[in-house]
């Protein structure tokens, strides 16, 4: 598994737990070889527990794969008619190592385009996708960059799919840039006007500042995560308040049916927004 700690740590942790298990006197007379046997038993149990966990995971994976094969063949009628009006923006988070598989990324985008998704934000931590954006754009004839879109407000009306490439620098660093912009702007204004009133910032101020520093953008409705873990890996925080996050497994195992199923599930979700 590779998830266990080094030997010293494990002994120390188990020793701490043993103190809780047995009376102190009994623990003190426990010799080290008994502790070793105890550790061995614990290690074995832990290993077995993870084997059970892995087996369940594999079974669930097989179920998902089977479902994804059934979806495109039309066996499940409910997936046939997707009303995509609700899904305006979709984001894809890919682990940077997997993002090197450009052909798979292109295939995924072709599927999304065929389904009818109009705006896709592609994110990987290290910006691998951003580096390969020319190749990706060349391979997709009906796509264009978000930055190149002249009428950003009405881009949804166009037939082309709009692509946006993001990396970790658009996340926390982007907000830090917006904070710098806001602070310098209002401190300068305060100095020039001599107004001593305390400036109270609001969320719309941050929205405006993010746009001004080039880190603004729409909040995706659905975010598909391709990678070993269900984690967004630093996708811009300001842009995923109510985004649905769906883990799709690794890019290597991606399936068209699984994408359709995730989108369909999203379309059936009802959000209360705290109400």
């Amino acid at each position: 598994m590779g998830a266990n700690r080094n030997g010293d740590d494990v002994t120390e942790i188990n020793r701490i737990h043993l103190v809780g298990f047995f009376p102190n006197d009994l623990f003190q007379i426990t010799s080290s070889w008994r502790l070793d046997i105890w550790n061995l038993v614990i290690r074995l149990c832990w290993f077995l527990l993870h084997q059970v966990f892995n087996t369940v995971h594999i079974m669930m994976g097989i179920k998902r794969v089977l479902e994804s094969y059934f979806v495109p063949s039309g066996l499940l009628d409910e997936y046939k008619d997707l009303q995509l009006k609700k899904l305006r923006y979709l984001a894809v988070v890919v682990d940077s190592e997997e993002a090197l598989q450009t052909l798979r990324i292109i295939k995924l985008l072709q599927w999304l385009s065929a389904i009818g998704v109009k705006h896709v934000s592609l994110y990987d931590m290290q910006g691998v996708l951003n580096k390969n954006k020319e190749t990706i754009l060349r391979s997709l004839s009906n796509s264009r960059l978000w930055e190149e879109s002249h009428e950003k407000a009405t881009f949804l009306n166009g037939g082309k799919m709009t692509l946006e490439f993001l990396s970790i620098s658009d996340g926390r660093e982007g907000i830090a840039k917006a904070a710098s912009y806001l602070c310098s702007k209002y401190m300068k204004a305060k100095t020039l006007s001599g107004n001593q009133n305390e400036r109270v910032f609001t969320e719309s101020d941050v929205d405006i500042a993010l746009k001004a520093v080039g880190c603004g953008g729409p909040e995706p409705d659905l975010l598909l995560i391709y990678g070993p873990a269900r984690c967004h890996l630093g996708f811009p925080a300001w842009r995923m308040r109510y985004t649905e996050l769906v883990h799709m497994g690794t890019l290597k195992s991606m399936k068209y049916g699984a994408v359709v199923k995730a989108i369909h599930k999203f379309l059936t979700v009802r959000q209360n927004y705290g109400k």
Binding site: R172, A229, C231, H232, L233, A237, M240, R241, Y242
Partner: peptide, 17 residues
């Protein structure tokens, strides 16, 4: 539910959901 609902958006970069 699979959304964060405006909770620990900043702090969840390496957080298992």
């Amino acid at each position: 539910e699979t959304r964060l609902s405006n909770f620990i958006l900043w702090q969840s970069t390496f957080c298992l959901l």
